[in-house]
Simulated scan of single mutants.
Amino acid sequence: MRVIATSLLVTILVASLLLETTRTDAQVEAKRPFPIRPVHTFSIVARDPSTSELGVAVQSHWFSVGPIVAWAEAGVGAVATKSFVDPSYGKLGLDLMRAGKSAPDALKSLTAGDEGRDVRQVAMIDAQGRVDARTGKNDIQAAGHIIGKNYSVQANLMLSEKVWPAMSAAFENAKGDLAERMLVALEAAQAAGGDIRGKQSAALVVVTGKPTGQAWKDRVFDLRVDDSPEPLIELRRLVKLQRAYNHMNAGDLAVEHRDNEGALREYGAAEKLVPDNAEMIYWHAIALVNMGRVDESLPLFRRVFAMDPNWVTLTPRL
């Protein structure tokens, strides 16, 4: 009887402890204004004053960082939201800027009502180049940001405080279009030590300066490296490939407008960037045939057919 009573007492005590633990966890969860796992990164939001393009770029030691952090809309603005991340800053920030608020006012409006603002890191830039950023006082160090003319760079959980100044200097001194300059800024951050945990994913988004009303046409670059030991190397490769396909698309558009010489210039520019891409060579050859320049197309067809005989099988089906 004594053994049974003791066992019963132990059971009651264990159940009581488990219940108390459950209550404590539930209470903590109810009060927690941010997720357990942070998305720590270095990033840049920027505007090109010569084209009005807007962009955001990011790298992190976190899987598939792009869909969470990087937000942009042509003619509206760009947002980077991270640290103990609340992704709604992206959509809501764009909504507020689209409604007429400046980027600084949009950011202030969102942080004012956010109990977790001290662990957020957010940057916003609008279509006029007005920019603001906020690094929460409880973000994991090293953390900080620099706001410059038409850009902001920001980082948290970095190896050192050299990261975001390196990004700022690199962006301001870089040449090329907005995508290239943002990519140079990311590379400078990594060279300065980057994320203390390492590297895993990256993303880059650039939207046109003039919105068309068709979002899919407004994205000049929309690239993500979700999981890679060298995400920036892979991102640079994808940027180059996207440039080539942008030339191909411009060539196709020129064909539609019966600008044959313009089309051939665009196709040639694409092939210079990726000379061994069978797809580009093939459609260049097809365009020549459609222009009545069959003799010029034959060397291109031979190159493609030598790469993969399936292109031979495809051709009669067109």
Rank of each mutant, 00 (worst) to 15 (best):
I4Q: 10
T6D: 06
L8R: 15
L8K: 11
L9Q: 10
I12W: 14
E20D: 14
T21C: 15
R23D: 12
T24W: 12
P35W: 03
F42W: 08
T51C: 15
S52Y: 08
V65C: 02
S83G: 07
V85F: 07
D86Y: 05
D86M: 05
S88I: 08
Y89N: 00
D105G: 04
L107E: 03
K108Y: 11
D114I: 04
D118L: 12
D118G: 09
V119P: 12
M124V: 01
I125M: 13
I125Q: 07
G129T: 03
G129F: 09
A133M: 04
A133P: 03
Q141I: 12
H145L: 09
G148I: 00
K149E: 07
N150V: 05
Q154R: 12
M158E: 07
V163Y: 00
W164M: 06
W164G: 09
P165I: 00
A166L: 05
F171G: 07
E180H: 07
R181W: 03
E187W: 06
Q190K: 13
A192N: 00
V206W: 02
V206R: 04
T208E: 10
T208M: 05
A215S: 13
A215N: 07
D222E: 07
L223E: 06
D226Y: 12
L235F: 01
Q242V: 00
H247P: 13
D252G: 11
A254D: 02
A254Y: 05
A254C: 02
R265Q: 07
A270S: 08
E271L: 12
P275Q: 00
D276L: 07
A278L: 07
I281A: 15
I286H: 08
N290D: 14
V294N: 10
D295Q: 12
P309R: 08
V312Y: 14
L314K: 09
